[in-house]
Computed example of a mutant assay.
Amino acid sequence: MAACPNGRDCSDFYGWEKAAWFKIEETAFVSVPVTDWSPSGVAWATQKMYDNGMKWTFTIPKCLANGPYLIRHETMAVQDSDELGKAQFYPNCAQVYVSGGTGKLKPKLVKLPGDIQPTDPGVLFERPPLPFAYTPP
């Protein structure tokens, strides 16, 4: 997420000018029924999104300050993640207004694009059969 600087809306906020983004959630693997395609009962989190009609549900932390924000949801395709520069990123943004927040969170801000590099663990990696130790970028 990123707080919109004018305090009203995100109409004049581009998001790439400085470190403004912070992470509120990440998911790599989900539990699924054991099947031929998932004998371990584990799948990439995109399976949950597919099963939910291409929707993803999460909770916005109550510790955020009130105001307008951009939410950036990103899906990363990892089928070619063992080749440098082949991981594929699919970001989408939506504007929300947070109310009832406490303002206690002072998150570490990062610049996007720029915080994630093609050589980062979780972007460039070998994909053994699931499950395996994995940390999202």
Rank of each mutant, 00 (worst) to 15 (best):
D115V: 15
K18A: 10
C63G: 04
W37R: 05
K106C: 08
A19N: 09
D115N: 15
R127L: 10
V34F: 01
V34S: 00
H73M: 10
W56S: 10
T57N: 11
C93I: 13
A3Q: 06
L109I: 09
Q79H: 15
M76P: 00
K48W: 09
S40P: 08
F89S: 09
Y69T: 05
N66P: 04
N66F: 09
R8C: 00
A20T: 13
N66D: 15
T46A: 06
N52I: 04
P107E: 02
P5I: 07
W21P: 01
G100D: 13
L112C: 12
G53H: 11
L70Q: 12
A28G: 02
G101S: 05
D9A: 07
F29R: 03
S99D: 15
A20F: 05
T35F: 11
C10D: 00
T119G: 02
V123N: 12
D36Y: 05
M49S: 03
Y14I: 01
V34E: 03
H73T: 12
Q79F: 08
T35W: 12
G122E: 03
K106P: 03
S81P: 06
S31E: 02
G103H: 06
P128Y: 10
E83S: 01
H73R: 11
K18R: 14
T119W: 08
P136K: 04
F125E: 04
I24H: 09
A2E: 02
L70C: 08
T35P: 12
Q88T: 11
F13Q: 02
M76F: 01
S11N: 11
I71E: 12
K23Q: 13
Y97M: 14
G101D: 04
E126A: 03
G100H: 09
L84S: 02
L84I: 06
F132S: 05
P129S: 03
V96N: 09
L130P: 00
V42Q: 06
D82T: 08
G85R: 08
Y134A: 08
G53T: 09
K55C: 12
A77Y: 13
F22V: 11
K48G: 11
M54F: 05
P128E: 10
G103E: 10
W44P: 07
P136D: 05
G85K: 12
A133G: 02
T119H: 07
I60Y: 04
G53R: 12
T119R: 10
K104H: 07
K62C: 09
E26L: 00
S38R: 13
H73L: 15
L109M: 04
P136R: 00
E83F: 01
A94Y: 04
R8P: 00
K108T: 15
